[in-house]
Nucleic acid binder design. Structure first.
Length: 255
DNA sequence: ATGGCCAATTTTATTGGA
């Protein structure tokens, strides 16, 4: 059994204790974090080492930053796309653990359709698509993280209210579909085709207690890995209590 | 059984998140 988790932690500094306690309790083999919001040197690697984890970090202060934590050795780390393009934002970290390739991504939010940030988001997704097609290869791999896109109306608490809004627009969904169609399986949807389940709830307006969420954090896998997936779930417990992240962890258990 | 934005910086306002 192998447990792989993605979690937008929304500042590891603000949530270090919470992240450590959750990790100790849930024992992921691999934990991929987004929005760590600090530089590599400030990442609490020692604290995670105390729980038995190695860390690969592609940090950035204030915004962004991604990390991979693993019980087994992390190899062949790629920080950013290293494709000659803009690396001003730390949003992509790729590495191998026991022959399994992991691609941890934090897609830009995009603010609102039509804005500069929206176009940046679409460019980032096109760049991710190109990078994966060029470098992902055909071995066992997982693509996971905060994609900031709800793939379908089933992933939205109120599809009418969110119609063509950020994270739900037709163009964003097409950009994600373009990435996925290269050979990635949405592991949660494979196991739960009709389940309404969310991974993010706005801090405002009692969104979490009211169930007003979106499914924007995903774990995709290539076919041989997807065949090993036994369960995928969202840990809503982690969204409760004092000072939670606005995202909940998504957990995939593989044979 | 979940709770009325939050985190970081530019810090007593502003920016970005989603």
């Amino acid at each position: 059994m192998m447990r792989i988790v993605t979690w937008n932690i929304n500042s590891i500094r603000a949530r270090e204790e919470r992240a450590l306690a959750w990790t100790a309790a849930n024992q992921p083999d691999i934990l991929c974090l987004q929005e760590i919001k600090l530089e590599d040197a400030e990442f609490p690697a020692l604290a995670f080492r105390g729980l038995g984890y190695e860390a690969a970090v592609f940090g950035q202060r204030t915004y962004n930053g991604v990390a991979i934590l693993s019980k087994r050795p992390i190899k062949d780390v790629v920080r950013g796309f290293s494709d000659g393009g803009d690396e001003a934002q730390s949003r992509f970290l790729s590495a191998s653990v026991d022959g399994l390739r992991l691609h941890n991504v934090y897609v830009p939010n995009g603010q609102a359709p039509g804005t500069d940030k929206y176009h940046y988001k679409l460019e980032f997704m096109a760049r991710l698509d190109r990078w994966l097609r060029a470098h992902a290869g055909d071995g066992p791999a997982i693509l996971l993280g905060d994609f900031n896109v709800a793939p379908a109306d089933l992933d939205v608490h109120d599809p009418v209210a969110w119609h063509e809004q950020i994270m739900c627009s037709t163009v964003e969904r097409a950009a994600l579909a373009r990435i996925v169609e290269a050979g990635w399986t949405d592991t949660l949807r494979k196991l739960h085709p009709q389940l309404s389940v969310f991974t993010w709830w706005d801090y405002r307006q009692l969104s979490f207690p009211k169930g007003k969420g979106l499914r924007i954090d995903h774990i995709f896998a290539t076919a041989p890995v997807a065949a090993r997936v036994r369960e995928v779930k969202v840990d809503r417990e982690a969204r409760k209590g004092k000072q939670p992240s606005d995202h909940a962890p998504v957990i995939a258990d593989l044979d």
